[in-house]
Nucleic acid binder design. Structure first.
Ligand SMILES: Nc1ncnc2c1ncn2[C@@H]1O[C@H](COP(=O)(O)OP(=O)(O)OP(=O)(O)O)[C@@H](O)[C@H]1O
Length: 661
DNA sequence: CGATTCCCTCTTTTT
DNA sequence: GAGGGAATCG
C-alpha cells in the first residue's frame, strides 16, 4: 500500500524526522513551516505514536480545523479525530472545565467576551469615581491585560512605579478581578493564567498531562505570549519533545503581550534544541517576494534570513494610487469581476486585505452593488448587535446565575419596571455585602425585609424573571435540548414583542429578529455537531470560536472573495491579493506610529504582501472618509521602501510634524 | 420609571 | 455616520 504523503524539501524532511527533543524551525514567509507541522504529525502517527499523545497549538481554531483535515487526508479521519488541536485558549478552557476546581474555579464558570470585560472595567472605574475622560475604559483594559500576561497581579501593579493614572488603573484592576471572581467569570487571559496555576499547584495532574501529551507542536510561535510559553515549558519539561515553528518577521501581536524574543532565544531555553532554517519560498513569485523583502529589510530588530522564490517570474506588483475609498473599492471590485468574467480566475482566488475594521465598508457596498460573492471574516459586528447581546446575556445568565454583567444587562430588557433607582439599590447592597445582585435579589425573594427597599412593581417583575430563569435552569438540568431552551426563553421573556416595541419599521424589525433567529440557529447547529452538547459548551464555543459558529450556520460559500484584516490573514494565502489602504496613518497606523511601533506595522505589511501567490496589487487613496468627514491621505512609507522611489514634495509621514519639502 | 433627544466619541489589530 | 450615554421631560 502506498501511504499518501506531502512533498518536502530536504530541510523540511529533516525537521519532520527529528521527532525527539526540542526543535525550532525559524524561517521566512511561505517556506512551508505549517507544512512541516502537518507532515510531522502524520509522520509521528505513522510511527506508532497515538493521536491522543499529540498536542498541537495553532493561532486560530480555523487553522486547527484545516490542519486536522489535511492530516485526516493522510492518516485517515478515524485517527485524526483523536488529535488535540486548537488555540491555547480553547485547550485551557477545556482543561479548566475539568480541573478548574483545583484553583477554586467553579465548574459552571462562564467566559466573558471583550464587551463584558469592558463593562466590568467601566463599573470598576465608576466605583472608584474615575471619570471616563480621565482614564478610558478601553485603555485601562488593555493595560490590565498586559499586566496579567506579564503575570503581574493587582497588588504588584499597585507597587509598580507609575503616575496617578497608573495607580488608578491598578486599583481598577483589583476591583475588576474581584468582580470577575464574584461573578464566577473568567476573561481570556484568565484561561491561560488559571491553567498555569492548576499545573503548578497540582503536580500529579501536571505529571499526567506530561505523560499524555508526549509530542507538542506550536505553529506561529513568534506570537506566543508569556503565559503560553510557560504552559509549553511545563508540559514539555520531562520529555522535551517540543517543536515550534515561526518567523520573527511575522510577529504582529506585540500589543497583546506576544514576545518575539521567545523565538529568538529558543536555544537558550532549550540548549539541546535543533534549529532548522528554511530558505525557499514556495508561495510567491519573485516579484512579490522581492517587494516584501525590500520592505522588511528596513526593520532593525530582526534576524536576517535568506529567502529565495521557488516559483518562476510572474507579473510585477501593481501600485495603485486612487482618489478616495469609493474609487478604490469600485476599481478593485470591477477588476475582480472582469478577471473572473474572462475565465482567468474564480472569486475564491481573491483576497482584499486591510489594516482596520472600518475599511471593508466601502468594499462590501461595492461587492453587493456588483453582485459578487464575498466573505467578510473576523467582523465582530454581529456579536455587537443589541439583540444578539441581549439573547446571549440571557443564556450566560442561565448558565451562571452570578454573572453580574449579564444580569444587569437583561434585568430591564424588555422594560419591566426595574429602573435606575432599583438597580442602583441592588448593586449598592451587593457591593456593601461583597456579594452579587443575584444574591441580593434571591434574598429579597425569600424575605423582602432582607435587603434594600424595592418598589412593589419592580419586585413583582424580579420575582417573575427569577422564576422564569429558575424553571429554565431546571429544564436544562433535566436534559432538555439547548435549542428548545433558547426557544422557550424567547417566548417567556417575549423577546419578539421587545423587538417590535423598539423598532417601528417592518424592515428593521425583521432584520433584528433575524439576528435573534441566527443565534437560535447556532444553538441548533451546535447541538447537532457537539459530542456532548451543554449550555456551557455552547457559550464557550461562541466566546472562543464565534467566527466558526457563524460560518457553520451559513450556507457554504466556497467561491467568494475574502475580506479580512492583515492580522486575520496570517498563515493564509491566495493567488491574487489586494492590499488596500496603504497609507500613512492606516499602515503604519497613526497610533502605532505614535507609540513607536512602526516596525510591527512593517511586519504587518510584510505579512500582507507575502499572502499573495501570483498577483499582488497594493492600493491607497488620496483622501478617505474618516468619522464621516473626508481627510487627505499620503501613500505609506512602505511604498517608498518597496519601490525605491523617494517621497515627493508635500508628502507627510504619520508621525511627522511637517511635510517633506 | 421610561421614552426621547441630543451630543459625543470613536477607528488599531484579537483570543 | 453610527451607536451609546447623559440629560430632559412626560
Ligand atoms: N516542499 C514543498 N514543495 C512545494 N510546495 C511547498 C513545499 N512546502 C510548502 N509548500 C507550499 O508553500 C506554501 C506555503 O507553505 P506554508 O503555509 O506551510 O508556509 P509557512 O512557512 O507556514 O508560511 P507563512 O509563515 O507565510 O504562513 C503552501 O502553498 C504550501 O503548499
Amino acid at each position: 500500500m502506498v501511504t499518501p504523503t506531502v512533498r518536502l524539501n530536504p530541510e523540511q524532511q529533516e525537521a519532520v524526522e527529528h521527532t525527539e527533543g526540542p526543535l525550532l524551525v525559524l524561517a521566512g514567509a511561505g517556506t512551508g513551516k505549517t507544512r512541516v507541522i502537518t507532515a510531522r504529525i502524520a509522520h509521528l502517527l505513522r510511527n506508532g505514536i497515538l493521536p491522543e499523545q499529540v498536542l498541537a497549538m495553532t493561532f486560530t481554531n480555523k487553522a486547527a480545523r484545516e490542519m486536522r483535515e489535511r492530516i485526516a487526508g493522510i492518516v485517515g479521519e478515524e485517527r485524526a479525530q483523536f488529535l488535540t488541536m486548537g488555540t491555547f485558549h480553547s485547550f485551557c478552557a477545556r482543561l479548566l472545565r475539568r480541573h478548574g476546581e483545583i484553583v477554586g474555579l467553579p465548574r459552571q464558570y462562564t467566559i466573558c467576551d471583550s464587551a463584558d470585560q469592558l463593562a466590568t472595567v467601566r463599573a470598576a472605574l465608576r466605583e472608584l469615581r474615575v471619570g471616563e475622560e480621565k482614564v478610558k475604559p478601553s485603555a485601562a483594559l488593555s493595560q490590565i491585560s498586559l499586566w496579567k500576561n506579564q503575570l503581574i497581579g493587582p497588588e504588584q501593579a499597585l507597587d509598580l512605579p507609575g503616575d496617578d493614572r497608573d495607580e488608578l488603573i491598578a486599583r481598577a484592576f483589583r476591583k475588576y478581578e474581584a468582580s470577575l471572581r464574584r461573578s464566577r467569570v473568567v476573561d481570556f487571559d484568565d484561561l491561560l493564567l488559571m491553567t498555569l496555576r492548576v499545573m503548578r499547584e497540582d503536580a500529579k495532574l501536571l505529571g499526567r498531562l506530561q505523560e499524555q501529551y508526549r509530542y507538542l507542536l506550536v505553529d506561529e510561535y513568534q506570537d506566543t505570549n508569556g503565559p503560553q510559553y510557560e504552559i509549553l515549558r511545563l508540559l514539555s519539561s520531562q520529555h522535551r519533545n517540543l517543536c515550534v515553528v515561526g518567523d520573527d518577521d511575522q510577529s504582529i501581536y506585540g500589543w497583546r503581550g506576544a514576545d518575539v524574543r521567545k523565538i529568538l532565544r529558543f536555544d537558550q531555553d532549550f540548549p539541546e534544541a535543533k534549529i532548522v532554517r528554511l530558505e525557499t519560498n514556495y508561495r510567491c513569485t519573485p516579484e512579490i517576494l522581492d517587494a516584501a523583502n525590500k520592505v522588511i529589510a528596513n526593520n532593525r530588530a530582526r534576524h536576517p534570513k535568506e529567502l529565495r522564490a521557488f516559483e518562476d517570474s510572474g507579473v510585477p506588483v501593481t501600485w495603485l494610487g486612487l482618489y478616495d475609498e469609493l474609487q478604490e473599492a469600485s476599481m478593485i471590485v470591477t477588476e475582480i469581476r472582469q478577471t473572473v468574467e474572462r475565465g482567468e480566475a474564480n472569486f475564491g482566488d481573491f483576497a482584499i486585505l486591510f489594516r482596520t475594521q472600518s475599511q471593508p465598508r466601502a468594499f462590501e457596498a461595492e461587492l453587493r452593488r456588483q453582485k459578487l460573492p464575498y466573505q467578510l471574516t473576523g467582523s465582530q459586528s454581529f456579536f455587537d448587535r443589541k439583540e444578539v447581546r441581549d439573547v446571549l446575556a440571557y443564556l450566560k445568565l442561565l448558565a451562571n446565575p452570578e454573572d453580574e454583567v449579564s444580569l444587569l444587562r437583561v434585568i430591564n430588557t424588555p422594560p419591566r419596571g426595574v429602573g435606575k433607582g432599583t438597580i442602583e439599590a441592588l448593586v449598592g447592597a451587593a457591593t456593601e455585602a461583597g456579594s452579587t445582585a443575584n444574591q441580593i435579589i434571591d434574598g429579597l425573594i425569600a424575605d423582602e425585609a432582607s435587603g434594600p427597599k424595592i418598589p412593589p412593581k419592580a419586585m413583582k417583575s424580579l420575582r417573575e424573571l427569577f422564576g422564569n430563569l429558575g424553571s429554565l435552569r431546571m429544564q436544562l438540568a433535566h436534559g432538555e435540548p439547548l435549542s428548545e431552551i433558547v426557544a422557550e426563553l424567547l417566548t417567556r421573556v417575549d423577546y419578539k414583542a421587545e423587538v417590535e416595541r423598539q423598532y417601528d419599521d417592518q424592515q428593521t424589525r425583521e432584520a433584528r429578529w433575524n439576528g435573534v433567529l441566527e443565534v437560535v440557529d447556532f444553538a441548533v447547529n451546535y447541538t447537532r455537531q457537539a459530542r456532548k452538547p451543554t449550555l456551557d459548551g455552547f457559550l464557550e464555543e461562541l466566546a472562543l470560536n464565534a467566527e466558526d459558529q457563524r460560518e457553520e450556520a451559513e450556507e457554504e460559500r466556497p467561491q467568494a472573495v475574502s475580506l479580512m484584516t492583515l492580522h486575520a490573514a496570517k498563515g493564509l494565502e491566495w493567488p491574487r491579493v489586494y492590499l488596500v489602504g496603504f497609507e500613512e496613518g492606516t499602515l503604519p497606523h497613526k497610533r502605532s506610529a505614535a507609540e513607536g511601533s512602526v516596525e510591527e506595522e512593517r511586519r504587518l505589511a510584510y505579512v500582507g504582501m507575502t499572502r499573495a501567490r501570483r498577483v499582488l496589487t497594493v492600493s491607497w487613496a488620496e483622501q478617505r472618509t474618516r468619522y464621516g468627514r473626508p481627510a487627505p491621505c499620503h501613500v505609506s512609507r512602505f511604498f517608498f521602501e518597496a519601490t525605491g522611489e523617494t517621497p515627493h514634495r508635500g508628502w507627510v509621514a504619520a508621525d511627522a510634524a511637517h511635510p517633506v519639502r
